[in-house]
Design a protein around this nucleic acid. Structure first.
Lengths: 167, 167
DNA sequence: TGGTTTGTTCGGATTGAGCCGAACAAGCAG
DNA sequence: CTGCTTGTTCGGCTCAATCCGAACAAACCA
């Protein structure tokens, strides 16, 4: 219940975020920087992030750029105050997961489907290859629709949709 | 429509699989070896895979081991015939995706949740950290349930569940 | 204007993953 | 028993990613 306990708990969660970042194909530094921002009460500048994380200024600069691009954190260019750029974490984790989904899975599914379609056009006769490709296409078409729909729902809605579904 | 066209189409799809493998955190060689097995009419041995893919014997050995472990291909230890081990692709792509989901996402979600629970126990009083951690926990609990349910449905069922859901 | 703070960009060191070839183990065939 | 095929394991090479420090650019302050 003390501040020390709080910061230990915070540190544990941030370490977990470092690990999650790796699972999702990001660097450990991304996980830590996001974690520090997640718990920060105000947006932080790059020098502040350097203090908090121990990473070099250049690392923080690069990581914040990519995290901003992906939408995990938001860049607030405060034209007014002393510091120039400050970063804030996107705390709606579900949004983040949706973004990752869209950027990774959906794109992958779509490019694969495009390849499959082109391959199918090329092979007119019914060979074994053709059949295999068709099977692949059918699964991917389901998958495309699933990903599309899932990205439109909130976590609670998605959960409910699955829980109330009767086969 | 000729054999040449077929094999070009096959090659295209296999290249696409190489790329997909990278997206899912596997090596390109994994994608190619899976692809060759996906289109093969019979299970293939390691020397045959060496011929088909051009990779070294050791590479094929290592990759087939990991792919078997994940469930992307199946090891058929034919005690009878001349060749000893042969591999067959799991062609139900949806099963594969479910496996990947289970192994990557579900495990990640569960370990994160465990960390969060422990962190919450430690911090009794309502600090800002505590609140942030609680928000995180709620999203992850939804997510855990979603992943759990999704892994029990077929692609078609899942698609239907989402399509018929009325908010 | 000169100095300080902030942020970006560049080159380089370190590390890990992927792949290879060679050595080794284990069956089968003669 | 001696080769021949198959599969695994080991050490090493290469390449890419990560991170660092230094140099640079840009804005603010005195």
């Amino acid at each position: 219940m003390s501040d020390a306990d709080s910061s230990v708990a915070r540190e544990r969660v941030i370490e977990s975020m470092e690990q999650s970042a790796e699972v999702y194909g990001l660097s450990r530094s991304s996980g830590r920087i996001y974690g520090v921002l997640y718990f920060a009460s105000d947006p932080l500048s790059i020098p502040e992030l350097v203090d908090e994380t121990g990473y070099a200024k250049s690392t923080v600069s690069n990581v914040t750029r990519t995290l901003s691009r992906i939408g995990l954190i938001h860049r607030k260019s405060s034209t007014g105050g002393g510091r120039r750029v400050r970063f804030e974490a996107e705390r709606e984790v579900w949004f983040i997961l949706q973004d990752v989904f869209q950027q990774y899975i959906q794109r992958e599914v779509q490019t694969t489907l495009r390849t499959i379609h082109r391959a199918e056009e090329q092979v007119a006769t019914e060979t074994r290859e053709q059949e295999r490709i068709r099977e692949l296409r059918e699964t991917y078409e389901d998958l495309e629709e699933i990903v599309q729909l899932a990205s439109e729902y909130s976590a609670a809605e998605l959960r409910e949709a699955l829980e109330t579904y009767e086969r």
